[in-house]
Simulated assay, not measured.
Amino acid sequence: MAKIGVLSAMPVEIESIIQKCGAKPLSTPHFYKVWEGTYGNNTVLFACSGIGKVNAAACAQHLIDAFGVDCIINMGIAGGIAKDLHTLDVVIGNEVFYHDFNPASLLEKYYPFQARFTCDARLAEIARNVCTATPEVECFRMGDIASGDCFVEAGETKALIRELGGVCCEMEGAAIGHVCFLNEVPFLIVRTISDLADETAPITYEEFEQKASVQSNHVVEGILKAI
């Protein structure tokens, strides 16, 4: 039996799976909303952190300290960076990194002595199997995910992230991976593309936000059933 933390930034990214498993809200005064549910023999703690790296890091640490989760899965939406990605494609994280930490070499020079954080191989393999078997997922890929405290729509930012090796971008994953690395807690980032991080991003995001969130929910639900 394991305790699994599932963390998203926005309610739209997590509401569907909470309702589906009948998770119950816990009393967490003056902090993040947390719901508790079960999948098989496992207890699942769902949390909604709010947008951005600090919110996500604090929420991840809270799941570890207050609830003793054995792993954390971060799900939600992302902007597509790789040229072969399309809206509603799923990205399973390989490594996560900050695209707005400059220079990133400072993270390597000082604690924690690395600038990239690697998703758990076992969880990633489960996610690959789930995506393969899930009819709603037409296309998925493994890749490095870039995080930063900005909504990416400028061409130069997109080009920078691509140069750094990122296939998609969002605002929380690297901070969650960073916290999990410090606490030696396995983690996985799963994101569905809601826009292509370009000048059309604001319009595309509005159109696909709900659909992309539901797509991520399908994948994470499959992962929870398989763990």
Rank of each mutant, 00 (worst) to 15 (best):
S105F: 05
C119T: 04
V90D: 03
N102A: 15
R122Q: 15
V90H: 02
V130C: 04
E95I: 00
S105R: 07
V96F: 05
A127T: 05
R116P: 02
L123G: 02
F101L: 13
E125N: 11
A121Q: 12
Q114E: 13
T118M: 06
Y98K: 05
C131E: 04
R122G: 04
D120S: 06
I92M: 01
N129S: 11
V91N: 02
N102T: 14
F117I: 07
D120V: 00
G93Y: 03
F117W: 12
F113A: 01
Q114T: 15
E108T: 11
R128M: 11
N102S: 13
A104N: 11
P103N: 09
D120L: 01
D89S: 02
Y98L: 06
F101S: 10
I92Y: 00
L107E: 08
L123A: 07
A104C: 07
A104I: 10
F113Y: 15
N94D: 12
D89G: 02
S105P: 01
R116N: 06
I92P: 00
Y111V: 14
T118C: 01
L123D: 05
Q114H: 12
V96T: 13
F101G: 02
Y98S: 04
L106G: 01
I126K: 03
P103E: 10
R128H: 09
A104M: 06
H99M: 11
R116S: 14
C131P: 06
C119K: 03
R128S: 14
A124R: 15
P112Q: 07
C131K: 01
C131Y: 03
N94F: 01
N129I: 02
N102V: 15
N102L: 15
R116I: 05
C131R: 03
F113L: 06
A115N: 14
R122W: 07
I92V: 10
L107Q: 11
L88G: 03
N102I: 15
R116K: 15
Y98Q: 04
E95H: 06
